[in-house]
């Protein structure tokens, strides 16, 4: 499986001891990081599709705006900025079960 490259880290990860699945692709992460940091590091910005079919990315970055909602381990509407990574975590972006025609 192809591993997504982290291109925007300010400094390289000291220990990339965690692997998660981002839209089916493997990506490395470090203990303590948020899911949003990983999404930012690979340069993925279209994170959510809201209930009105509008695309959204991280906006407040601190858990207030609910714009970075992704599916985590199959559970939708989880705030990427408020979720700490775990080994084997599955993250899917632009998931919305309300909007017709969206991936689910």
């Amino acid at each position: 499986m192809q591993t997504l490259e982290r291109v925007l880290d300010i400094q390289p990860l000291k220990a990339a001891d965690i692997t998660l699945q981002l839209n089916g692709q493997a990506v490395q992460a470090a203990e303590g990081e948020t899911v949003l940091s990983v999404l930012n590091a690979v340069g993925l910005r279209r994170l959510a599709q809201n209930d009105h079919g509008q695309p959204a990315g991280a906006f407040c970055g601190m858990g207030v705006c609910h714009c970075c909602l992704v599916a985590i381990d199959g559970r939708p509407k989880r705030r990427a900025c408020q979720t700490v990574v775990r080994h084997g975590m599955r993250v899917e972006t632009e998931v919305n079960r309300v909007v017709e025609g969206a991936q689910s």
């Binding site: 910005r45 279209r46 990315g57 991280a58 906006f59 970055g61 601190m62 705006c65």
Partner: peptide, 8 residues
Amino acid sequence: PGVMLLGG
């Protein structure tokens, strides 16, 4: 996407 609040 790409527009963010400054503190964030």
